[in-house]
């Protein structure tokens, strides 16, 4: 009985999400003791504000990966949406609200473009979004001629970047709403159920009478919409819209999703895991830059990136390593 218990505890520990929560707790404990001003309310809202855009992209990326797909275009789309928003508000003198609305709509359209290529033409998601990754960024650069930066937005809009409600910055609310939305979508609706089934076996799902192509399209469209929302947050926070906004964000988002335990092959994963992944990365990069020695050397960014990579590899390799050690102990090699 006791061996059975210890076995189940061990398998629980090997569960990715549990491992990650442990890492998160360790991070927080370490930084509270070693990083300057880490635990202040100001810094906590700082972490939320800075992780919001990548966090949004990661949350939208999760269902895409759950279906066995990938969307490399979201970072570029963020840049394109930011520029489009700048064009509407500055060059066309639109009011903020309609411009924001149209930006989000265009983001959805861009996502639908990805989805159409992937489902109607049955092209591999990796190739399609690699194409639109260049296409969207190229468009943004063409519009701005690579140099133009839109500044001086409506003070009301820029205020959003600093806006708080009940002590939580606006970004926190948006991120929380997105987490709730994707959490419900993935875990409590037939759509999420279909994503998972498609991730495991698109053919098998088709044989169950589920409209596989329609269901596959949905996460890409949602990713487009979410990238546009992230573009607005980005513009409000940095008070400017540039063509290179969100460069490399798609990879950061994928890192958070995979770190959060979603299988890159599709099928398995949880939204709360993704949230934990986002938090682990955000806290790591914020905390490490506040450790006095790092601060002095001025290598916060480099170290954060290095540690994120190490964390990802370690988290992915840990269960495999434990299994390897166990089997090595059980069976002497011949």
């Amino acid at each position: 009985m006791s061996s059975q218990n210890s076995r189940s505890i061990k398998s629980l520990l090997l569960r990715h999400e549990v491992l990650l929560v442990l890492v998160l707790v360790l991070e927080i404990f370490y930084f509270l003791n070693n990083a300057r001003n880490f635990g202040t309310p100001d810094n906590l809202s700082n972490i939320v504000r800075h992780s919001a855009e990548i966090g949004l992209l990661a949350l939208a990326m999760m269902p895409v990966i759950l279906t066995g797909g990938i969307d490399l275009s979201v970072g570029s789309l963020l840049g394109l949406c930011a520029v489009l928003f700048g064009v509407m508000t500055h060059d066309w003198h639109w009011a903020t609200l309609p411009a924001a609305f149209v930006t989000i709509l265009l983001g959805g359209l861009a996502g639908a473009f990805n989805a159409t290529l992937i489902t109607a033409l049955r092209l591999p998601p990796l190739i399609v979004t690699l194409g639109t990754y260049s296409l969207f960024r190229g468009l943004a650069e063409a519009i701005t001629q690579g140099t133009k930066t839109y500044r001086s937005f409506d003070p009301g809009f820029l205020g959003l970047g600093e806006f708080r409600f009940l002590g939580l910055p606006l970004q926190g609310w948006v991120l929380g709403f997105a987490a709730l939305f994707f959490g419900i979508l993935v875990h409590l609706t037939v759509f999420g159920r279909s994503f998972r089934a498609i991730g495991y076996s698109p053919e098998g799902t088709r044989y169950a009478g589920i409209p596989v192509l329609r269901r596959t399209a949905m996460p890409y469209i949602l990713a487009g919409l979410t990238a546009a929302v992230a573009a607005l947050l980005f513009t409000a926070r940095l008070q400017q819209a540039r063509a290179d906004a969100g460069t490399g964000y798609e990879l950061a988002a994928i890192t958070a999703v995979v770190l959060g335990g979603t299988s890159i092959f599709g099928g398995s994963g949880t939204v709360y895991g993704t949230l934990t992944g986002i938090a682990a990365i955000a806290i790591l990069s914020n905390g490490i830059s506040r450790v006095p020695a790092v601060l002095k050397a001025g290598i916060g960014g480099e170290l954060a990136s290095l540690l994120t990579g190490a964390l990802l590899l370690l988290a992915l390799a840990a269960p495999a390593l434990v299994r390897l050690l166990q089997s090595a102990r059980k069976q002497p090699t011949t």
């Binding site: 998972r196 089934a197 495991y200 076996s201 053919e203 098998g204 799902t205 044989y207 169950a208 099928g267 398995s268």
Partner: peptide, 8 residues
């Protein structure tokens, strides 16, 4: 392949 999605 088609009858049952094994991991589910």
């Amino acid at each position: 392949r088609h009858g049952v999605i094994l991991p589910l």
